[in-house]
Design a protein around this nucleic acid. Sequence first.
DNA 1: CGAAGAAGTCGACCGGTCCC
DNA 2: GGGACCGGTCGACTTCTTCG
Length: 460
Amino acid sequence: MSLSLAKVEELAPDQGSLAAAKKLLKPSTWPTLAQDGSGLLWGECQGSGATPYRIAVTEADAGYKCSCPSRKFPCKHSLALMWMRVEGRVDFSTGTPPDWVNDWLSRRRGPSTIAPATGAERPKASIAAVEETEIAVDPKSEARAAAARERNRLEREAAIANGLDELDVWLADQMDAGLAAFPSKAIAMCKVMAQRLFDAKAPGLAARVDTIPARLFALAEAARPTAVVQELGMLHLMAQAYRRQELLAEPLRHDIRQMIGWTIAREALLADERAERVASTWRVWATRSEVQPDKLRRIETWLHGSDRHAVLIEYVPVSTGSSSSGYSVGDTFDAELVFYPSSVPLRALIVRQITGSDASDAPLALPTHDLDVAYGLYEEALIEKPWLGDYPIMFRGARLKRSGQAVYLSGNQVNLPLAKSQSATSWPLLQFEAIDGIGLWDGSELTLCWSETALGRWVA
DNA sequence: CGAAGAAGTCGACCGGTCCC
DNA sequence: GGGACCGGTCGACTTCTTCG
């Protein structure tokens, strides 16, 4: 028999030819690949010219002919044709040889023309070596890919900078027009600005602008003017912080970049040596599921362990119907978590889960401090991260009080309004002198999640 | 030395995957 | 669900090589 990988190696004039041939092994390069069924192969290979090269090979004696002008014999095209045949991964159609193949056959001298190994002194080319050099070549394409990434990044930074400039102008316009009028036209105005920020590749900031009207209208009318100032002020703060991110401590820099819309790939976080990891027994104390404007369901699982909090966040398309993370309030499991970098680290990923999650009746491991101290901790966190969002408030010895329609959770000094949606469901708790528990405080209202009382547990 | 074409280089494009 | 990102591929362009 005839062709083998060893034979192809032997024929190759040098290592470079083999490497070049390897790149031609994909069928897409070959408009024609055929055989006559008795050891004659031919094909057309699209080179850099307009007309493809024509290659013919005889399997029996490894004869070859190529119309390319290469001065190497055999050229990469002939080598590639033989290689593909030996590998057998590519289909050769069967047919009668075209004229140009017959032409070559008729003019061809005998099989003996193949000079048997002048190759004694030339370095032997090897297919294995091609595979090896592939890896060696990698750094080059790696560098090119890195350059492309860097280019993309700079482009996006430029787009974001433009977006922030537009935001500044927009904010100034709102101030000029007067903030009292803002709520009445907020929906239309915010939609336009959000779209612009989205186009400026700042999707995080865009989402924030987009949802301003919803947050405003959730408030009593009297509270809206102040909220407008806070919302627009926060936008200004974020735009400024992003521009000056070089001056910020690294965790806060991550925060502002994340708020604007940069993301951290799961893999990158798992591979990050410096990311904070905590192994502990974690207790699920709340789960939330909320549909976002972009038709995604955001599922949060809030955890407590080793005297700290963490939240797992996953996103599921609404269309898939799934609305739960698989965890239930009260579940306990051992796991190592890795926290997303932040000045107030909360969001985390599970690195490895050591035990499965089990429903547990054990009481929550509550701290010794009261609501006043808990609120103090919130304020400290707020200093670290001004756009904090939801923050866990874990307390002992607080009391629920009612004032008109509103319900408040009261400590000695602090009174936190309960979420309106809970004013009815929380009424059984009004009877207790003191309750322990945990809730999520978003800066304006508290969503009570879990409470231990003299009569037992209350869960939202 | 110039022509011709191979080979190398680089950006554009595309489809699959990931992330929010 | 939909954009961002990544790796792979394609093709235009440049550089290199060789020969008459």
